[in-house]
């Protein structure tokens, strides 16, 4: 799985595609595959000792399970639902793009995704880093941020910082607000400060969590793993493949 990449990818899509897409719906789409299941995959506490299911990998990426949320089909179905409910092609398209970005990012770990479900439950996985979700959030954080997963997050963070002007108030007022009815709707209910908070929060969280997780994984937690940027790393974790 990917971590902060899911928080940052939507901003770059918005920067490249302009007014054709809606940032809030890109973000909702990006969060959608995991939004209801992460707590069950990791268990109820940070340590991972309070498991809720016997096979988190099967639940998260398999079928039976909710692995269908990590398929191209799921994004299309929910996108069509958004189109039917809102009438906005921009919102529907944005949801699909955000969802697909998440799905394709998750092909980089060792479990991968059922990309073409329901046609097949075959998993596309590139094994750039190990899937360690079954070990709980604490161990997964250490494994992810000491492997190429952490590099993946850094790439997105650097790309976003290179385009830092998209996070300015002027950019929001002149480029974001006028082109998406979501902000008009929110602006009737909340101040500009609240709108800017909603606009920037995921980018803020993504950048801060990358810095913080790296420091925590390498220096603070009691198991201080070294960086392992080998393909399929880190090598100290158990090998896990598709369910």
């Amino acid at each position: 799985m990917s971590w902060a990449a899911h928080d940052l990818e939507p901003y770059l899509m918005r920067a490249k595609l302009g007014g054709a897409v809606s940032l809030p719906f890109l973000l909702i789409g990006s969060y959608s595959p995991d939004i209801l299941t992460k707590w069950a995959v990791y268990g109820l506490d940070f340590s991972g000792n309070n498991k809720l299911v016997d096979d988190p990998v099967q639940l998260h990426r398999g079928f039976p399970g909710v692995g269908f949320t990590h398929s191209l089909f799921f994004g299309i179905v929910v996108g069509l639902l958004i189109l039917w409910l809102s009438g906005s092609r921009m919102w529907a398209f944005s949801f699909i793009l955000g969802n697909w970005a998440h799905v394709l990012s998750d092909t980089l770990d060792s479990v991968g995704v059922m990309l073409l479900w329901p046609l097949t439950d075959w998993h596309l996985h590139f094994d750039a880093w190990q899937y360690v979700g079954q070990a709980g959030r604490r161990v997964d954080a250490i494994a992810y941020y000491t492997s190429l997963g952490g590099v993946w997050d850094i790439l997105w963070a650097v790309w976003l910082l290179w385009n830092w002007r998209i996070l300015t108030t002027d950019y929001f007022r002149n480029e974001i607000y006028p082109k998406d009815h979501f902000w008009h709707w929110l602006g009737r209910r909340a101040s500009e400060t609240v709108m800017l908070t909603v606009y920037r929060a995921s980018a803020f969280f993504g950048i801060a969590s990358i810095i913080g997780w790296f420091v925590w994984a390498l220096l603070v937690n009691e198991y201080q793993a070294a960086l392992d940027w080998s393909l399929g790393g880190p090598q100290w974790t158990p090998r896990v493949g598709p369910p």
């Binding site: 909603v198 803020f204 801060a208 913080g212 603070v220």
Partner: peptide
Amino acid sequence: VLIYAALGTQLPQAVFLGFWQSLPYVL
């Protein structure tokens, strides 16, 4: 960002579980 990241290094479960945790801080 650095203040929030520093907080997360001490209490990751309090601020790093999801972007929704950052909303009050960003506000």
